[in-house]
Amino acid sequence: MADGANANAIAVVERRLAEATADNGWWREALDRATREGAAALPVLFPALARRLGRGLIGGGRTAEPSPDATGGEVLVDLDVWRVCDAAGFVLLRACTAITSEQAVDLFLHGDFEERTIVMRAHALRPVDPGTIALFGEAQRTNTSTHFEALCCDHNLPARACGVADFGIDDVNRMVVKAAFMDLPLARMFGVEEHANAELSRMLQDLATEREAAGRTVWQDTDRLVGLAPTRGTLLRLLGGLEHGSDGRRLRAAEALARQSAPDLLPLIEDRIARERVDAIRAQLTQLAGKWKGS
């Protein structure tokens, strides 16, 4: 790992872990062993992390720092979701000078529920490497939401990894659609909005149509994301959203429309403003109408 990269986040993780493991002889021995023996020691140490060190949250809030790898940009992580055992897993991985892709995947595949969570979450603060990409493949294969979330939510690892090795925009798209399928909030997938694209919008709109046909709920961030990269049908979907009975859906449609430019449709917006009963939505639409009038 490059010197100084992620320094603040890592310092927080190490400090909170040290506080939580003060006087814990097992942890001192485990760390010594990982440092001494390298990755070969991890399969025996990881299973005991949650049991020996606990699952208490370490806190620390959100951090944003330069990326430790060649991807550039920033590493964004919400340490509030990290637990003591997650922090310990990260520190153990870091103590081993080299972890191969096979070793990272092995820790996941042959780990129990907690080990798998720890392996996934710890990668949020690690440089993107072939092991990271392989773990995205495992995340895409699992429907255990905890493991998927650990690798894809509360940090910007997917956004950071996009373009590295074989992990391209198609992979990000499939991951986002899976998150939508699992009803995970977009707000927890840091940086994904920057990768909005027309194909992702098509996929999300198709999923929404399918859900609507079945009388099921639609991912609530659909409007927001498709509004960032409109494709065929996006404008009609958003306009239709303005007539929805749900206040939330109307507000999200209005917010997404604010990113569009369709002055010809201004009379439709003005008609909706006249009938809209929720102040926040009316204000949003009024702002939109002003923008379209001026364009």
């Binding site: 025996v44 140490l45 299973p47 005991a48 949650a50 129990d112 907690e114």
Partner: peptide, 9 residues
């Protein structure tokens, strides 16, 4: 076996 003997369950 040592790896599996450390699992919680």
């Amino acid at each position: 076996l040592p790896r599996y003997l450390e699992k919680d369950s």
